[in-house]
Computed example of a mutant assay.
Amino acid sequence: MILHTLTLTFDTSRPVHGSAPELREYFARKFAEYTELHRQEDETFIHRYPVVQSKIIKDFPTVIGINEGAVFLKELADESREIQVGPDTYRIAEHDISIRDEEFGLSDTSHSYEFATPWLALTQENYKRFYKLTGKPARDEFVQKILVDTILSLSKSLDYDVTAPVTCDTNLHFQKDRLKGVSVMTFTGKFQVNFLIPDYLGIGKSVSLGYGAVRRIYRGIRKG
């Protein structure tokens, strides 16, 4: 399956201090007529995958559009001269636009990825189950199953039919975080999977708020 993607990175006049949710809120206010910015995934993550996702990558405000979202982002790039992240306003020195047609789906070989932003993987129920597990092997197996389920759910939301087993291996580390005042667990690190995922596509929960952006690693060196 081919996904049409547009990645828009803003080079601002000074370093950005703020969060991806604040960046998304700014675009939602400024471009209220574009419904793509207001479309968020529900708790089941099925059939509600956001076509526009805001992220902060290495202090650079970044927005990725998928399919119809890519068309919207081109218009956004032409109109934006400054952005607001939280209480601060930043002048845009230039835009970096990357437009690609990229493969998404099963692969005959395994590919390596890393999380460019923390992966929000666990529901409250799975959060409790994870903590009850003892030993790294049991926790790794549990997280690997969730990762596979997440990829299957993403595939369904994009109308991609997975016709063979998805297998993965992970080297992840968990940490506590807060989302909208609620304590959550997120994961960072690397994983391998027999699946092609475009760079900076978000997987898991709250991807429209910047979580779960993946980036492919080529021979031990990440791309981009």
Rank of each mutant, 00 (worst) to 15 (best):
L3V: 05
L3A: 07
L6F: 06
T7S: 09
T9N: 08
T9Y: 03
T9R: 12
F10T: 00
T12H: 09
E22N: 15
L23I: 02
E25A: 14
Y26P: 03
F27A: 04
A28F: 07
R29A: 13
K30G: 01
K30C: 08
F31P: 00
A32N: 13
Y34R: 10
E36Y: 05
L37Y: 09
H38L: 07
R39E: 15
Q40T: 14
Q40N: 11
F45N: 05
I46F: 14
H47T: 10
H47A: 14
Y49K: 06
V51M: 13
V52N: 06
V52D: 03
V52G: 04
S54H: 13
S54M: 14
I56S: 00
I57S: 02
D59S: 15
F60C: 07
F60E: 14
T62Y: 08
T62K: 03
V63F: 06
I64S: 07
E68H: 12
A70Q: 01
F72I: 15
L73Y: 06
E75Q: 15
E79S: 11
I83W: 11
Q84I: 06
V85G: 04
R91Y: 12
I92R: 03
I92Y: 11
I92V: 14
A93H: 15
E94A: 15
E94V: 15
H95Y: 10
E103Q: 13
D108R: 11
T109C: 07
S110L: 12
S110K: 15
H111M: 08
E114S: 11
F115N: 03
A116W: 10
T117Y: 02
W119G: 00
L120N: 00
A121M: 04
L122D: 09
T123E: 04
T123S: 10
Q124C: 10
Y127P: 01
Y127A: 05
Y127F: 15
K132A: 13
L133R: 07
K136P: 06
K136W: 11
A138V: 13
V143C: 05
Q144S: 08
K145S: 11
I151P: 05
I151K: 00
L152N: 04
S153K: 09
L154M: 09
S155H: 04
S157H: 02
L158V: 03
V166K: 00
T170P: 04
L172H: 06
H173C: 10
F174P: 15
K176Q: 14
K176S: 12
L179Q: 07
L179V: 13
G181C: 05
S183P: 08
S183M: 12
T186S: 11
K190D: 07
V193E: 01
N194L: 08
N194E: 07
I197C: 05
I197L: 15
P198T: 08
D199M: 11
Y200S: 03
Y200E: 06
S208Q: 07
G210M: 04
Y211G: 04
Y211L: 11
G212C: 02
A213H: 01
A213G: 00
V214I: 10
R216T: 05
Y218G: 05
R219G: 07
I221K: 14
